[in-house]
Design a protein around this nucleic acid. Structure first.
Lengths: 308, 308
DNA sequence: TTGAAGCATAAAGAGTAATTATGAATCATG
DNA sequence: CATGATTCATAATTACTCTTTATGCTTCAA
């Protein structure tokens, strides 16, 4: 089945405009027979005569008049479509879907998204805070453009960019016996009770690793699936905890928690920006990636300055 | 400048629908590489990626989603356009512009247009009643599809169809001295005064011709540019006149005028349907032509029966 | 690890559309 | 009234585009 040919239609529009094959050929930079052939084929395709040749004047038929109007309609939709494609090519318009794991999604990304939004106000941003499994899932099923996380998936081909250091610090209540002491030997921790996240949490895994390497037993005071709850517990004196530095701004400022200066701490992990290697990043996504990598550093430095 | 290719867009729509090149190829009865090539070119033309290949699943990108919507819009306009063309191909829709000279346009065509309108109620009909010069002008400049007239233009290539006889009869007032007599010798007319149309009128020319051939002088009582005025004058006894039979229905019925039975009368001319040889008659115009030629005969016969 | 599924790539052939050159008809003009 | 300019049609050739077949690579389920 022979579908309408836009090339023919475009040619027709010009011929109809001038009511002349010759002048249409000039405007189109085609030869006159080429134009004639296009019109002949268009007439054959549509099954209607488009022009009347009266003497050496060319007139539109009724069908031609109607087709001319439809041509304008069609090309105006196409123009609109091209504009849309143009805006998609530009990073300043479009949609962006970012996934983040719990900590980074709660404490780091929101600020950056705010800044990005200021720079690219017409970009529609979606952020999903997900656990590691769901994140990996969202990545491979293409539901997010990219993800920010600590432990990147290893079994799928991805592009990984180091994004920001994740300092895991030991915190305690200000009245804790270790608070304020400096260069606390690691062994001292053996007597402490810990508040921990659920198994599978990256932070918990890190803590377990260092205790295993030091061959010390890890005393668990409480297991909680939520950073806020852990912070509350520590502040209440239920024990100490290993937490991401970025989650502690307010608690440190208001002196509800203090960082313990223990040998081997902070443990510095990396947050990473990840996306599928196969993924065609949109202009918007590329802009966001660049933006994130530039601003992350600065933000982390600012934190460190503040901390000193 | 490379314009959008509808073939590519149509292919894209199917691929987008299935999110699969293979299944699209099946539906389109193309090979899979052909489909791939189409999409590749479309992406190049638009400057955007349309699909993400994640593993062996194919996903639409943002640009692809947008394009899919535009594709639907574009093809719906095109469908509508095809429907319009279809209706133009049919004789039951369309426009029709007919020109007619004064007599036939006033007394013959209106009835036929009414009948045609009953048979083709969706056809937009325009009739222009024009003098001979204007009619010829309208024909060559393509402002009317066809014309009905007595003296057809000879210097332009036309298609001419005899349409109906135009009986030119001599009429007088019922109290005229010749009224009621039969087989009046032509010579008797020499004593009569005539009411005539302006020079250039076909009827006048016909009368002048027969007088010239008989070598008789033509006595002019009055020259009037209008058939109604002539009829009024004749009825008032100002003289006799040569008039088209079809213009006399009412006057004969109400006995305001009578036909004179003079040797050599009525003079029978032809009305003809004329259109440019080069003109592409629309389906509607062809239907009207057929209709007119069929119904004209019948109508004239009816007139004659009534007259007897 | 093997095979099926899905898409890409390359070479060859069929179909489409461009160009040049030329012809026929119209129409204004010296 | 014949000449030349204008306009579109036709024909042959060439260039280009698209399709197909054959094949390879990667993914993913069994």
């Amino acid at each position: 089945m022979r579908t309408l040919n836009l090339h023919q239609l475009a040619t027709f529009q010009v011929v109809a405009k001038h009511c002349s094959y010759v002048r249409a050929a000039e405007e189109l930079h085609f030869s006159q027979p080429a134009v004639s052939a296009q019109i002949r084929q268009l007439e054959a395709n549509l099954g209607v005569k488009l022009f009347d040749q009266i003497g050496r004047k060319t007139h539109l038929t009724r069908a031609g008049e109607e087709l001319y109007l439809y041509g304008q309609k069609i090309f105006s939709v196409i123009d609109e479509m091209h504009e849309t494609m143009e805006s998609i090519r530009s990073p300043y318009y479009g949609r962006l879907s970012v996934g983040a794991d719990t900590t980074v999604g709660s404490y780091v990304i929101p600020d950056l998204l705010g800044k990005f939004h200021q720079a690219y106000p017409n970009v529609e941003i979606t952020m999903d805070v997900l656990n590691r499994v769901m994140l990996e899932n969202a990545l491979v099923s293409n539901r997010v453009d990219m993800a920010v996380m600590g432990n990147v998936p290893v079994d799928i081909p991805t592009v990984i960019e180091p994004f920001a250091p994740n300092e895991l610090v030991l915190v305690a209540a200000p009245f804790h016996r270790l608070a304020g002491r400096i260069k606390i030997p690691f062994q001292e921790l053996a007597r402490e009770h810990f508040l921990l996240r659920e198994p599978g949490s990256g932070t918990r895994a890190a803590l377990e690793t260092v205790f295993q390497e030091a061959n010390l037993p890890l005393e668990i005071s409480m297991q909680v699936g939520n950073n806020s709850a852990i912070k509350k517990g520590v502040a209440a004196g239920l024990g100490i905890a290993l937490l991401s530095r970025v989650a502690l701004d307010m608690e440190l400022e208001t002196n509800r928690l203090v960082i313990l200066d223990v040998e081997g701490f902070p443990i510095v992990h990396q947050w990473r920006l990840v996306h599928l290697k196969e993924k065609n990043l949109s202009a918007t996504a590329r802009a966001f990636k660049t933006f994130l990598l530039q601003h992350a550093d600065w933000r982390v430095r600012r934190k460190e300055l503040k901390e000193v």
